[in-house]
Amino acid sequence: MTLGSEFVLIISATIFCIGAVGFLIRKNPLIMLMSVELMLNSVNFLLIGYSSFLKSLDGQIFALVIMTVAAAEVVVGLAIILTIFRTRHDLNVDHINVLKG
């Protein structure tokens, strides 16, 4: 059985939307970062799927690059969230609200 490009498109769009909705409704920065990872993985799925349909290697290279960049971003993100947790002992983004106007 071979799967069509629509399949790849629909699955990746679904995962992307789950990630985006998760990012928007969750209040915990860790879960929000995880949602972003989900979005990036849906991109990888789309790229690798289409790379095989289009018979071009660009998509696979792009997917590798995205994995690397996502890892770097998460390292920085987790470090930032950790330093904040250390001083506040509270991980709700709604409580980070001193700047407004």
């Binding site: 990012f23 990036l40 789309l46 971003e73 993100g77």
Partner: peptide, 28 residues
């Protein structure tokens, strides 16, 4: 400064994900 960095990190990461999905669709 903490608030600044958290807000920039979260919105920036979200924006990057949207941007790269657009790039992937462009490739598709």
């Amino acid at each position: 400064s903490q608030e600044s960095t958290v807000k920039y990190l979260l919105t920036g990461a979200f924006a990057s994900a949207i941007l790269v999905y657009g790039m992937a669709l462009m490739y598709a």
